[in-house]
Amino acid sequence: MSVTIITLVVVAVFIGALMRTVFGFGEAIVSMPLLALLPIPIHTSVSLIGLAGLTVASLTVVSGWRHIERPILIRLALSTVIGIPVGLVMLYLAPASVIMTGLGIFLIIYGVYSVIKKRIVKTIDHPLLKAKGWVYPFGFASGVLGGAYNFNGVPVVIYGTLRQWNPDRFRGTLQAHFLISGVLVVTGHAIGGLWTVDVLVLYGYSIPAILLATVLGVYVNKRIPAKKFESYLFLIIILLGVLMLVPRG
Results as ranks from 00 to 15, higher is better:
M1C: 02
L8F: 12
L18M: 12
R20Y: 07
T21P: 14
F25L: 08
V30I: 09
P33H: 09
L35C: 08
L38G: 02
L38C: 02
I40N: 00
S45K: 03
V46F: 05
I49K: 02
G50R: 01
A57I: 03
A57T: 03
L59F: 15
V61D: 09
P71G: 09
I74R: 15
L78I: 10
T80Q: 02
V81L: 15
I84G: 08
V86I: 15
L88F: 11
M90R: 10
L91G: 12
Y92K: 08
A94H: 14
P95K: 05
P95N: 08
T101W: 14
G102N: 02
L103Q: 04
R119F: 14
T123S: 10
I124V: 11
D125Y: 15
L128R: 11
L128E: 10
K130P: 14
W134V: 10
A141T: 07
G143H: 13
F151E: 01
F151H: 00
V156L: 06
V156N: 06
I158T: 07
D168Y: 11
R171K: 05
T173I: 05
I180Q: 10
S181M: 02
T187N: 12
G188K: 10
A190R: 04
G192D: 11
D198C: 00
V199Q: 01
Y203P: 00
S206I: 02
S206D: 08
A209I: 03
A213K: 04
K228G: 11
E230M: 06
S231A: 15
I238G: 15
L239I: 06
M244E: 05
R248S: 10
